[in-house]
Design a protein around this nucleic acid. Structure first.
Lengths: 198, 198
DNA sequence: TAATTTCGCTACCTCAAGTATCGATACCTA
DNA sequence: TAGGTATCGATACTTGAGGTAGCGAAATTA
């Protein structure tokens, strides 16, 4: 039960023979988010996602080896790169927190994030994919931008993402702006504030 | 699909006729935690829990209407009352954080907590039970002890529990003591520290 | 035209939550 | 001691979701 997410055929320089894949990945991603948004993570079955995308279920399983892998790719697509804006450490951290809070607030994104995260609890293979493909890139970007060691950035991510997801999971509603602002106010002093600029 | 957790027959002053229930609730709780600890939340099926407890599956469904309800009751039993120790606000908050961190570190407890929490994301009825039976008592106790309004205590819980569960879910290992200590160091100043004693 | 690959479609397998039923058992009351 | 009642274990079942197998049709290259 491998979690190799990228099932794109090995890209050789020459175009391989046979029928090329139709470019419906984006349609599937959109259908995934909208289905998760409307029905919740557990009721957003692969059958329903396929139907919403106007695609056969088998087509989805040809491209992603599992529902979890599909969600991870969908989230990667939804998140995009971290916009690390600002010159001071405070501005960088603050922008990162507001960015992830906004993403989690987008329809379907927060539910999909929390859902795949919860599946990973009892699925070490999925946890590996989640960590390597979704968390590590952002963690490395933060390490680089902030000049903090790995364990401190991991702690930062645990606090920010954990808090946002716990609120969403417990209430069903994403954190409001004032609470996100309070989160920023709590986190920044602990991580050095404006002491040193980049 | 009701989530009425307490399926104990309505207690009248007179003892009802018929065969009384065998006192195996504690055995079922212990079997639940050990099974979740060994297999993870998703693979800890009700069949397996029943087998581990030496009880028929139907007996479990006579006492709890769903797996989620069983887990909630199991966690209530495992957590017990919050030991709010100390006289200063800092001591109270610090003891509460260390207490929940230790509970989440107990074998099976953290996995069961994270598991039922994640099920609740796409199950509003279970979320209601989780909030009312598991979170509200502790939230009220904290409000009373700290003299903080509801929204601030909710934020406190989101930060502490969210952070601990995110670490557990992402790594499969509970937070180590040094990280819990750092969490305390980060949270306490934001919530007023030692400013006013109780 | 032939080879190759993806497409949609249908049927299927496995597993887990939850339900139904039944004879056996334990308790109370008369 | 006999009868009523509710729980017990055991078995079988239903429902739904993840995931697979195999088919003929369609799209591309050589």
């Amino acid at each position: 039960m491998g979690y190799r997410v990228d099932m794109t055929p090995a890209t050789t320089s020459a175009r391989p023979p046979g029928r090329p894949r139709s470019g419906v990945n984006d349609v599937v991603f959109a259908a995934t988010l909208s289905t998760v948004h409307e029905l919740g993570y557990a009721r957003a079955t692969v059958d329903r996602i396929a139907a919403a995308a106007g695609v056969a279920k088998t087509t989805i399983y040809r491209r992603w080896p599992s529902k979890g892998a599909l969600i991870v790719d969908c989230l990667l697509d939804a998140f995009g790169p971290v916009p690390l804006q600002g010159t001071s450490r405070s501005e960088l951290m603050s922008s990162a927190i507001h960015w992830i809070a906004a993403k989690i607030g987008e329809p379907g994104v927060g539910d999909a994030f929390a859902g795949v995260f919860s599946d990973a609890i009892s699925d070490p293979a999925l946890r590996e994919v989640l960590s390597a493909r979704l968390q590590d890139p952002y963690r490395l970007a933060l390490q680089d931008a902030l000049g903090e060691p790995e364990n401190r950035v991991l702690f930062f991510i645990d606090v920010v993402v954990g808090t946002l997801l716990h609120r969403l999971g417990m209430t069903g509603v994403p954190m409001v702006d004032s609470d996100v602002a309070e989160l920023v106010q709590m986190v920044l002093p602990h991580f050095g504030g404006d002491a040193d600029l980049t």
